[in-house]
Design a protein around this nucleic acid. Structure first.
Lengths: 231, 231
DNA sequence: ACCTGAACACCGTTCAAGT
DNA sequence: ACCTGAACACCGTTCAAGT
């Protein structure tokens, strides 16, 4: 990672001021490098060609910057959801886009798994989910609770996947191989199910789990809507 | 946090050696203090009355210690699941116990949300979930995928709740109040659903969301079992 | 064989000093 | 008004030195 000889890092900073916009974009570039490049204040200074502490002139602290950066990634999620879908496919498209963006910017998504940006694009996603559960037939408390179920679950899922991407390669390798190593060595009498399903457990894919988790949310909404209609 | 005058911190370390056991127990005591006391190597040294680096004689690194500590907390989860429940109630009891233990040791649960301990108590929990989905009527790939759906979802959920507990009080306060502040100020024409459901969104409880998320998992298993029986 | 403690390579953030 | 850079209070981990 030694500097190339021409420009310091990116824009020359030709007398021009640093802007929140430029800081957010530099953050996205760093985050997009995944585990290869930690998203730190010092690294951000390098990327911007300024002193690391210069960002404190534009953001109160790193957390406030993170919220702004995260809301920008939510914009990317929204942009990739096509119009004209029914509520189920709208939620499927949201899940798909959320995962893609989370894997693109793992440091951001991982840090946001328990958080709220409280910014413009988050409002739009909330409105989108509320529209979906409303179209499904829910209202009032039911709509609010099922919105939170969907929103929190998606956030948790993509955050879980993103965090995994950020671990040391050797930690990840050890976790990944557990189904073909530690779990294959368990006592057959004490653990009959693990023994019987060893092969299948080792071969489960992220895609299968993703599908099961997303469809479980949709089914739950359909179920509740049916119960409400029946009453 | 100045030392009291009598004993250094806990056991006197009366010539006796440090043991993995003592290190794990000290870790659990620190983790149980929540955000009041960060789970760091230096803090662990204080708690044990030894030099912080002494633990490297017993664990390769902090991650390996974390896995051992986490597996101990899984033992607490297992101990609080009563016998004799049908598969649905067994999963409900597992979810309930997992959340309770995660909120008791937030630093551990938060760090484990994307991880595997690959140790004894984890094997027992996997066996428990596989037993439940088998009793529900699933087998082979279906059993494996639905086990992962349940296991990963519970881990993500309790990790999400635990991580939230560890944030600065002011960060948490800002996130919590968003439903009564930022979300109440959105434009009514651009965000009709948020506007209409503002009150309900602000009043949703953790309990309601937890219930919806856990029941969604159980329903998904029931659904798949019905589909398999029908074929 | 195990523990100590200095040291290293990192973090986020503050604040006086520069322009 | 904004950026710089030294400094502070932290991290996890290594390694030579002690016992």
């Amino acid at each position: 990672m030694s500097k190339p000889s021409l420009t310091p890092a990116r824009s020359k900073r030709v007398g021009s001021q640093l802007t929140p916009e430029a800081i957010i974009e530099a953050s996205l570039r760093i985050a997009a490098r995944g585990s290869a490049d930690a998203f730190t204040v010092r690294r951000l200074g390098e990327e911007l060609g300024t002193d690391p502490t210069a960002i404190y002139r534009h953001f109160r602290d790193k957390d406030e910057l993170l919220l702004s950066v995260a809301d920008r990634t939510l914009g990317e999620v929204l942009d990739s959801i096509p119009p004209g879908l029914d509520w189920q496919d709208r939620l499927r498209a949201l899940a798909h886009a959320s995962l893609a963006v989370a894997l693109k910017y793992p440091a951001v998504s991982s840090a946001m798994a328990s958080r709220t940006t409280r910014r413009a694009n988050e409002f739009r996603i909330v409105e989108l989910i509320l529209g979906a559960v409303t179209e499904a037939g829910l209202d009032g408390v039911d709509a609010a609770v099922h919105y939170r179920m969907v929103g929190d679950s998606l956030l948790a899922y993509v955050g879980q996947r993103a965090a995994y991407l950020l671990f040391d390669p050797e930690v990840r390798a050890a976790d990944e191989s557990s189904w073909t190593r530690e779990y294959r060595l368990v006592d057959a009498h004490g653990f009959p199910h693990i023994t019987r399903l060893g092969q299948e457990l080792a071969e489960v894919t992220h895609d299968q789990i993703y599908h099961a988790r997303v469809e479980a949310l949709i089914t739950a909404i359909e179920r509740r809507a049916q119960a409400v209609r029946g009453a």
